[in-house]
Computed example of a mutant assay.
Amino acid sequence: MMCLRLQAHEQTIGVIHLTRVPLAQRATISALAPQIALPLAVLHLQSELEYLSFHDANTGIYNRRFLDEMLERAIASAERKNHQLPEGEPPATVGVIFMDVDHFKQFNSEFGHEAGDTVLRTLGSLLTDITRAGEDVAAATAAKNLC
């Protein structure tokens, strides 16, 4: 039996556990562990970067960049479906609901940014809970960025 620590950049990222390894192959397998660890670390970092590029850091819900991409895809999909509709069928549509948190700037000023962040996280959780998985998207965007 062999247990090999996968380490990249002085951080353990996993363990390989092998059973019934012949003695003659143990040195070779031990030498492969660092070769496996680095690509796994890179994949993990890429995954983190992708998550951060499409999620709001405070609320954890999707951000404006993701919303823009999803809207573009949803509209294109609806247009494709509408070109293939039989006569008399209702058209495919895309719905967007925008919500404004009234007086949020005043709330933030009065109660502090930590309380404001808590409100936004709670609202993000609520929106995530009420959306239909795989169908709806909850996203956060600052009002000043909207056109």
Rank of each mutant, 00 (worst) to 15 (best):
L4E: 04
A8Y: 14
A8S: 14
I13P: 06
H17Y: 12
R20P: 00
R20T: 12
V21R: 01
L23R: 03
L23K: 02
A24L: 12
T28L: 15
S30Q: 12
P34R: 02
I36P: 14
A37I: 03
L40S: 00
V42F: 15
H44G: 05
L45T: 11
L45A: 12
E48R: 06
E50Q: 10
N58H: 09
I61C: 03
I61T: 09
R64T: 09
L67S: 00
E69T: 09
L71Q: 03
E72K: 02
R73T: 05
R73V: 05
A74N: 04
A76Q: 13
S77H: 08
R80P: 03
K81N: 10
Q84W: 01
P86I: 03
P91W: 00
A92S: 14
G95A: 10
V101I: 15
E110P: 02
F111K: 04
E114D: 14
E114L: 15
G116L: 10
T118N: 07
V119M: 11
L123Y: 09
L123G: 02
L127G: 01
T128Y: 10
D129E: 14
I130W: 13
R132D: 06
E135T: 10
E135S: 07
T141M: 15
T141S: 04
A142F: 01
A143W: 02
C147A: 08
